[in-house]
Write a protein that binds this DNA or RNA. Structure first.
Lengths: 343, 343
DNA sequence: TTATTAATTGACAGCGCTGTCATTTTTTTA
DNA sequence: TAAAAAAATGACAGCGCTGTCAATTAATAA
């Protein structure tokens, strides 16, 4: 029923070792032989048995995705991308949810890596932002690829896939500026997350580039949640004598933006006529609010696939130098932003 | 470094086959021997090698979770529960996202099962609600456990874990009735989903139990989305001469409820004073709205773990008859419901 | 007690593949 | 052209475990 390497060998008229060489893309196989084998592989629809490979070889064909992120949409997207790379490359994916704040997290992961003979790991924030943790893992005999917020890798511990939130935030802020907004509020996400910091930097940079004076009172600390968006927007929009009331709000993600939208409704502020609001992430959230959110699209699926491919090529020692690929989320203009009406 | 079955055998002074018997919980091992081996296993912190097991044995130690559900929170929860069962039982989990509406879905899954030597599958809605699909899989040599909405299994194709949405919906509707509400709107989810149908039945049953006349005009068709909640609530709450304006709304899930909440705000209807709204699912959503939603808690994590355990025991042929376990989501009263003010 | 049966245990092959190393074939050099 | 070097291929063991079946031991019957 299912073809084995033996069947292929017979069909191609070579030894199983030669078949093994072909499917592992090793050198020192004549072109002619390689084609012969490849044909047999195709005819029999042969796929190597992962268990046997893992057992026999020194190498491992398993990678793991370790996550701790309250945002389920993010994880599902990532997972899908990684899975897609694994399928293409004949790798197996282990999923490991965990709690980054727990005491024994490092030991837990180290054990897992040893036990399951994991060849590589994919780390997303906040795990990818924990240097100690990453260092411990890299010192083990396991490849690591991190997905991080920023434009350059913070160190050379491992290859990284960078998501340039800063440039994206600048672009999206610029979009508001282009619409005539000058008093732009900033609703921050969790301050410990790099993404918040980067998005803040982009916001500042855009203001500076347009010679708009930065007003600290328009920056509200918070967290990546709907609630935070509600309270932050309320604070921003309540009448204050000293500060101008903002005509636009930059929210660090779509959830916050949804909260801000909600608060605006409570305060009878019409969106986008009286107030423009932007989100970040292009999560399903942003299409479910009314009006739909202008946001920055982060192709998580693609980012994850890219990261997994990078990891696998590292494992295969296809010695491409430590590549850093970079993504810049793209502006998506929807219905929550409009020309500034204030004169 | 990592202990093998050989190490354990030596340490215990028995043959590897005996160790194998102990770890597989086979009969015909003397109690004394069993303890001796168990001690060695513990001392060496031995864990059987999955690849070797999969390769050597006729059995497989892999199960798969096949999903297609737009609700990421649901999937993450499920996945976590399944993963937990797998860890306990020494099984491996394959994750397979897919599109239930695609043409070749059945073939795709069948192939996967064959290729990866999957011993069992866990199916959640909407896949678990596709009889043809399930039948094809059951006819293969693979165990299936479905998670379904309802109180009894629709057939005896496979064991099921039932989530009794009907009783839960009745309870939650009763909660509204207890608060004095009589005109209770119903915002449906996708009509093709069993969960919508069951929740609707529970709603009807509660009305009947309290001798409240059913009013078809208060039932709005829709889908499981925020938008649907917004438009549905608008429709319900717009002034209609013929129908009483509802004082409470039953929403088929939290997203719909969040939408209804939003619409109410737009219409200057205060929650919960003028209108009570309930959700369903207890998703993170329900804690992020303001006011927080009264809802029905569905312990997805636990349900999934239960399903996985059931599946694994099936695979192990621990011939407990086809068990159907049932969960009834529990009412969680938060801030979106209050005494009816209408006299 | 001894013969018979049942319960335990172990020896060994083999799952499908890769690593090592010997063998064969091809290419290069003298 | 023969000898040496390099490239290509194959034979075989073994990864860690389970299945089969034979060997041993304990329990029961005669």
């Amino acid at each position: 029923m299912k073809a084995t390497i033996n069947d292929v060998a017979k069909q191609a008229g070579v030894s199983i070792k030669t078949v093994s060489r072909v499917i592992n893309n090793e050198a020192s196989v004549r072109q002619l032989t390689r084609e012969k084998v490849q044909r047999a592989v195709d005819e029999l629809n042969y796929q190597p048995n992962l268990s046997a490979r893992n057992l026999a070889g020194a190498k491992s064909y398993s990678i793991a995705y370790i996550y701790d992120n309250p945002n389920a949409y993010y994880i599902i997207d990532m997972q899908k991308g990684i899975l897609s790379a694994c399928k293409q490359q004949g790798f197996e994916l282990l999923i490991h949810p965990c709690d980054s704040k727990s005491q024994g997290i490092t030991e837990e992961v180290v054990n897992m890596v040893k036990q399951a003979r994991i060849a590589g790991l994919i780390l997303t924030p906040p795990l990818s932002e924990m240097p100690e943790f990453v260092k411990t893992l890299v010192d083990l005999d396991v490849k690591v690829v991190r997905i991080l917020s920023g434009d350059v890798a913070p160190d050379d511990l491992s290859p990284c896939v960078m998501v340039n939130d800063r440039d994206a935030a600048q672009t999206i802020t610029q979009h508001l500026i282009d619409l005539g907004h000058k008093d732009i509020g900033f609703l921050a996400g969790d301050a410990v997350h790099m993404s918040t910091i980067e998005r803040y930097k982009g916001y500042r940079r855009a203001l500076k580039a347009s010679n708009i004076e930065f007003n600290k009172a328009l920056v509200i600390e918070g967290s990546y949640s709907f609630d935070s968006g509600v309270s932050g927007a309320k604070e921003l929009m309540s009448v204050q004598t000293a500060n101008p009331r903002p005509t636009a709000i930059f929210s660090c993600n779509d959830e916050i933006a949804a909260g801000a939208l909600f608060a605006a409704r409570l305060m009878n502020i019409s969106i986008p006529e009286q107030l423009s609001i932007v989100g970040f992430e292009n999560s399903p959230f942003s299409r479910q609010t009314w009006p739909k959110l202008t946001t920055a699209d982060q192709p998580n699926n693609q980012i994850a696939e890219d990261a997994a491919m990078l990891l696998i090529s590292q494992i295969r020692k296809q010695k491409n130098p430590i590549t850093i690929s970079q993504y810049v989320p793209k502006l998506i203009v929807r219905d929550s932003t409009a020309q500034c009406e204030k004169l």
